[in-house]
């Protein structure tokens, strides 16, 4: 690995991330593998962002509880429609500067870029629903047992073939 994301982090953050890496996923199960069912040019693709994005008409992520208990992160998720733009979005991540993605949503949730790749014939289609959750989850168990199955169900209803998971 020549890419070094740690160069952007403080020594404290680096030590915490290295601790999490050493702890691993908390399961002995093998890493799942699902072959792509059809060529990308025929596949339906959806996006998942960790940037705690919600639409202005939806419920906000619970940042107040995280401020009161900094170990905790909101494990819920929100659906973002494929037509969403910066003007429709609230960003609630307390660990990054949200200003860039609020100026141009495609820096974190590339809906317009994906639509362009569909129109260019590189990707088959763009799913109606995209997703966001809040990536600071030191204990992800509630997220894994509630939000993930709900997102997967929605993806299955929309016949999604591939998910581009976009951390921030």
């Amino acid at each position: 690995m020549t890419i070094d994301s740690f160069k952007y982090l403080s020594p404290t953050s680096t030590a915490i991330i290295r601790t999490l890496i050493a702890m691993g996923p908390g399961t002995e199960e093998p890493i799942p593998w699902t072959p792509l069912a059809r060529p990308l040019s025929a596949a339906t693709v959806t996006l998942v962002s960790t940037a705690a994005l919600s639409t202005k008409t939806d419920m906000l992520f619970d940042t107040e509880s995280e401020r009161a208990n900094p170990w905790w992160g909101d494990p819920s998720y929100r659906i973002i429609p494929r037509t969403a733009t910066e003007g429709d979005i609230v960003a609630s991540h307390l660990h990054i500067d949200n200003a860039y993605l609020l100026r141009d949503l495609d820096v974190a949730l590339p809906l317009r870029r994906l639509d362009e790749l569909v129109r260019a014939g590189f990707v088959g289609s763009i799913a109606p629903s995209h997703y966001s959750f809040q990536g600071y989850l030191l204990d992800p168990r509630e997220f894994l047992s509630t939000s993930v199955p709900a997102m997967v169900e929605q993806m299955k209803r929309e016949a999604v073939d591939a998910v581009v998971f976009v951390p921030v």
Binding site: I3, N98, Y100, D106, A108, R113
Partner: peptide, 13 residues
């Protein structure tokens, strides 16, 4: 993997 900073995984606004 990409060598971009946190918050802008796809690039600049």
């Amino acid at each position: 993997a990409i060598d971009f900073p946190f918050g802008r995984p796809l690039g600049q606004p």
